[in-house]
């Protein structure tokens, strides 16, 4: 526990907090309250009148097969993205940990993709895999793969998952490297003397000791896949083909800003708000309470 600072003046603490509070109020509480309010209204097609409808929007959204489909897409997308972002990151981190010379260079290079904006990353992948002009698409086709993410749903999902995961690998890599460094070398040496081969050492010593890092990243990556991949999806598929890559966040945008169903879109964003609150609670509950070994 750090000792608490005691302010003799009652207003000074609030004054010092004011900028942060103002930002939170303007950019979070106000829009959130607007969304809550909006989610209980229905607007006529021309935006001339609104009508209070209570929870009707929620009822409608939750019974909408499109919404449930979008839920499914989001879950598949998130699980796939988290896995695809974490497994290679762990592999790279373990490899980079073994490098003796030029360790810093490898790490720096592997961190770069994180600095690329989501939309740019999306464009990159779009160009590489564009069925008509993409260089990798050409290669795939010459290998006999009928590659067309513009028409083929599963392929579109694969493409956005790959683009989203690729960007996140760097971030995960960084945390895994730090996690690996925190494992005392003598533990690995003791295991080597105890007759465990390299693979066995990894699965019985290193991997269990990385568990806190892995869990933390799992939560972070899920949140990322849920909420921060709008830019990539928007750039690569725009939610299509059909609704194959329309995640919950993308649907909020589509329904609200494209289809102008403001009430339903607001109801969806309220549901998302509940999900993000739950995920944050999980993160605080389990991740903040870091496991201490000693």
């Amino acid at each position: 526990m750090t000792p608490r600072a005691i302010f003799p003046n009652k207003f000074l603490p609030y004054l010092l907090l004011a900028p942060q509070l103002a930002i939170t109020a303007i950019f979070f509480y106000w829009p959130a309250s607007q969304a809550l309010y909006q989610s209980m209204l229905r607007e006529d097609p021309f935006g001339l009148s609104t009508q209070f409808v209570g929870l009707a929007n929620f009822r409608h959204v939750l019974n909408d097969p499109n919404y449930l489909h979008s839920f499914q897409v989001t879950i598949v997308f998130s699980v796939a993205t988290a896995l695809l972002a974490m497994v290679p990151a762990l592999f790279l981190a373990v490899m980079a940990d073994k490098v003796v010379r030029g360790r810093g260079i490898y790490r720096t290079l592997l961190i770069w993709p994180y600095a690329i904006a989501p939309a740019i990353a999306g464009m990159l992948w779009l160009f590489l895999f564009n069925p008509s002009i993409g260089s990798i698409a050409v290669m795939l086709r010459s290998l006999g793969v009928y590659w067309d993410p513009l028409l083929n749903g599963p392929q579109a999902v694969i493409l956005v998952v790959a683009a989203a995961a690729w960007k996140q690998i760097s971030y995960n890599f960084l945390f895994f490297v730090a996690g690996l460094q925190a494992i005392p070398k003598s533990l690995v040496e003791a295991a080597a003397i105890d007759g465990a081969g390299e693979t066995k050492r990894f699965w019985t010593i290193i991997f269990p000791l990385l568990a806190p890092t892995t869990f933390f990243l799992l939560v972070i990556n899920t949140v990322y896949a849920f909420f921060d991949t709008f830019g990539i999806i928007h750039a690569v598929t725009g939610g299509g083909p059909g609704k194959a890559t329309e995640t919950l966040v993308y649907k909020v945008y589509n329904d609200g800003f494209v289809n102008l169903l403001l009430g339903e879109s607001a109801a969806q964003s309220v549901i998302l708000m509940v999900i993000v609150v739950a995920l944050t609670a999980v993160q605080f509950r389990y991740v903040e309470r870091r496991v201490h070994y000693g």
Binding site: S186, E189, A190, I193, I205, G294
Partner: peptide, 11 residues
């Protein structure tokens, strides 16, 4: 080998 920090497997 017995290590200075014991190197017991914490988990």
């Amino acid at each position: 080998m017995v290590f200075q920090n014991y190197a017991l497997y914490p988990h």
